[in-house]
């Protein structure tokens, strides 16, 4: 193996440009940070909803959700799950769109659709959690959690 000298480049590095936020780096870090948190969030989510109850998904109904969301702990838990998972998922989908969609117009349209649907679902989901009424008036008492006055 012969060693070779690498010539100095013809022009020096351009004079320091204004430093910008490296969004791709933060996105990359976010995928890893949110990933670790999501393991804990999803594990408890699946455990309480599918394993702890009797019969798995068969035990889930409006009254079950009413019971969980009358506890602020689960409201915060589900809010974290919503925001971390949806942003992680749509940022991952952004990577995949960038990988496969070569037509710039189609790509831009898909990225905008991805962003728009994520914003709408984040707002909708958050609104649902914090405006939830476990005892809505005019419902069948048998559909409601046991702590409702109508029950």
């Amino acid at each position: 193996m012969t060693s070779s000298t690498i010539e100095a480049p013809r022009s020096p590095r351009p004079v320091a440009r204004k430093r910008r936020v490296n969004w791709e780096k933060w996105g990359w870090l976010y995928m890893r940070g949110s990933g670790v948190l999501l393991i804990v969030l999803i594990a408890a989510h699946l455990f309480t909803n599918l394993i702890a109850g009797q019969g798995g998904v068969k035990a889930i109904d409006f009254a079950f959700v009413g019971g969980k969301w009358s506890n602020p702990f689960w409201k915060v838990w589900d809010t974290l799950l919503l925001w971390l998972a949806l942003i992680h998922g749509s940022n991952g989908m952004r990577t995949i769109v960038n990988d496969y969609v070569s037509n710039p117009k189609v790509r831009k349209t898909m990225l905008i659709a991805l962003l728009a649907s994520s914003v709408v679902l984040l707002l909708l989901g958050t609104l649902v959690i914090y405006t939830f009424d476990p005892c809505p008036a005019g419902s069948l008492p048998s559909d409601l959690p046991s702590f409702c006055p109508a029950q």
Binding site: A63, G66, L82, L124, G125, V128, F132, S139, D143, L144
Partner: peptide, 11 residues
């Protein structure tokens, strides 16, 4: 997210 949002529609 959409199916869970139905808790806001009705039981």
């Amino acid at each position: 997210i959409l199916d869970t949002a139905l808790v806001r529609v009705s039981p």
